[in-house]
Design a protein around this nucleic acid. Sequence first.
DNA 1: CTCGTGACTTACG
DNA 2: ACGTAAGCCACGA
Length: 95
Amino acid sequence: MRSIPEGRVTTYGLLAHYLGSRAVRAVATAVGKNPDAPRVPCHRVVRADGSIGRYSGEGGVQTKQRLLESEGVVIENGKIDNFDRILFDFSECTD
DNA sequence: CTCGTGACTTACG
DNA sequence: ACGTAAGCCACGA
């Protein structure tokens, strides 16, 4: 997740796939159980349809949305605007 | 071991 | 667009 640049987001599916696991739900659960909010930009991980999803950190989804918008991500009607444009698929990730 | 549940996803009606 | 079903892996009861 630390490879995700500011203003970009990814989905649980892509994240799990990048990790080489098909356990999308397990990955999502792990992310949620270990809120590295201040350490890791877990708020840049959203659902596949562009919706925020959930957030276990302070303020919940509200904070998650504010963090994203603070990085330049535009969210409209609970969904990310230009989702397919700012979507980070790890293709430009060199790690 | 079987069931239910979960920061999920895709497919079908 | 919305509800349901199924698939997925991990975890706890």
